[in-house]
Amino acid sequence: MGNFIRNIALSAIVSVSFVSAALAQAFVFTAVPDEDEMRLRQRFDKVAVYLTRELGVKVRYIPVKSYAAAVTAFRNNHVHLAWFGGLAGVRARLLVPGSEAIVQGYEDRFFITYFIAHASTGLRPADGFPAGIAGRTFTFGSKGSTSGRLMPEFYIRKHLKQAPAKAFARVGFSGDHSRTIALVQSGAYAVGAVNFKVWANEMKAGHIDPAKVSVIWKTPPYPDYQWTIRGDVDTVWGRGFKARVTRALLDMTDTDLLASFPRKGFVPAKNSDYKPILDVARSIKLID
């Protein structure tokens, strides 16, 4: 009850400075929910334990439901560090001046989207863009995803010279990569675009029947996931805090922890690494 009344009172009168002074500051991070959301909490709670040990401050993970929710929480200063996809990271850094991409996964320097098709389409794997997908049904992943939305849409517009809504009989947004695979596998959609890491995971888990759904094209590589941190963390947790977070993330070598991403390891990153993503997002008008 006390908490509830406090919330209501706060919303009415009190400003942010009071609140942050009144509450012990935990360092909070989140991650975009790109796959197996059910396990995200378990996996990232382990990462929180690791970071708490490395940084000597209380670190907490909070789960969010969507890419936009992750960006919003970062912007509202409810989370201070986030594991973003390329596009979400670019959006977040535009909204929070001073925030920085600090670390990316080894694989994120050359990320790839797979175009997958149901067997009945007769589409075969090819080196060039599969122009035969025009006029069929097509599903993206989440609306805010880099690999499930931004890059596939960019290549569709480039090669088919039309917006997806015009180029296909119907365009859906499955919500995430696992769902995209399930929908194309069942033939609900004829073609879809999926993150190559998730495809490999689902293949390993035995969820994919190669007789029903297969990869027909691989996009050229682009930069994707990264850890982005707010610019004001040093003022809250002391000078050099950002550098210590960066170090802790780069030093994460435990295979169990890395498997939660899943990445081979982490390498340094900077905002300019994501210039190509920003340009593509602007070119297809996903960012003003």
Binding site: N3, F4, S15, L23, N76
Partner: peptide, 19 residues
């Protein structure tokens, strides 16, 4: 109604700046 607020206690703090 008396119990409910206790169930919901916690969560992020509210900031006037964001509003």
């Amino acid at each position: 109604l008396l119990i409910a607020p206790f169930v919901l206690a916690g969560g992020a703090e509210i900031s006037l700046d964001n509003i």
